[in-house]
């Protein structure tokens, strides 16, 4: 484990905790896209199929359980919690799941490392993770007032992706035969999706004004 990978995992963890904290303490999910959260739950459910069959490390297993547990509980909060669900902006969060899920599934059926159920699901989870943030970004653009926590959540997610790329560069030069095109290209696409958001995030931070994305 290198420092970039650890920092990446920690920012990923922080992003999830920020979101859970917001929902749990303020009892509000305003500005949070249920579509994106459901897609993440699907991403983790399909990627961590090996959780009980292949033991890598205690760290790995615990992190997987945290990401699975947190993503499903966020979905539960927005859908079922009697106070939180009232703040859900259903009319603004209109992105269609299948618009992202179907192309990713087709791509996974065509481009994968091995044609086995687990490998296809694993490739699918990578492709879906790359685009799962889109409903959230669209919602942010529509919501004129982005609260600090939602802004920080998206920022931390983007930082996690950027750190993973540094991790791959590091591993490429330090580990023999560390070449994973599927992971890298999907990861690069995912990180690029945050570029626009990052630009406005830093601008608002630099000028000390509230974050607003242009329509």
């Amino acid at each position: 484990m290198n420092i970039f990978r650890l920092a990446g995992d920690m920012t990923h963890l922080a992003s999830v905790l920020v979101l859970l904290l917001k929902i749990h303490t303020i009892k509000s999910c305003a500005g949070v896209s249920l579509k994106t959260q459901e897609l993440y739950a699907l991403v983790f459910a399909t990627r961590y199929l090996d959780i009980f069959t292949d033991f890598i490390s205690l760290y790995n297993t615990v992190m997987k359980l945290i990401f699975l547990g947190s993503s499903f509980s966020i979905v539960w909060y927005i859908r079922r919690h009697k106070i939180v669900r009232r703040s859900y902006d259903k009319d603004q969060d209109t992105f269609r799941h299948y618009f992202l899920v179907l192309p990713c599934l087709l791509l996974a059926l065509v481009i994968h490392e091995k044609f086995t159920f687990r490998e296809v699901m694993w490739a699918f989870s990578l492709y879906l993770e790359a685009v799962a943030i889109l409903p959230q970004l669209v919602l942010l653009q529509r919501t004129r007032n982005i609260d600090n926590l939602t802004g920080q959540y998206v920022f931390l997610l983007g930082a996690y992706r950027a750190l993973y790329i540094l991790n791959w560069i590091y591993r490429y030069f330090t580990e023999p035969h560390f070449v994973h095109w599927i992971t890298w290209i999907a990861g690069l696409v995912q990180t690029l999706l945050y570029a626009d958001f990052f630009y406005y995030y830093f601008e608002s931070w630099k000028n000390n004004v509230k974050l607003q994305l242009p329509a």
Partner: peptide, 10 residues
Amino acid sequence: TSESILKDEL
């Protein structure tokens, strides 16, 4: 092998 390295990421 490449596969075992791959699966150690989250």
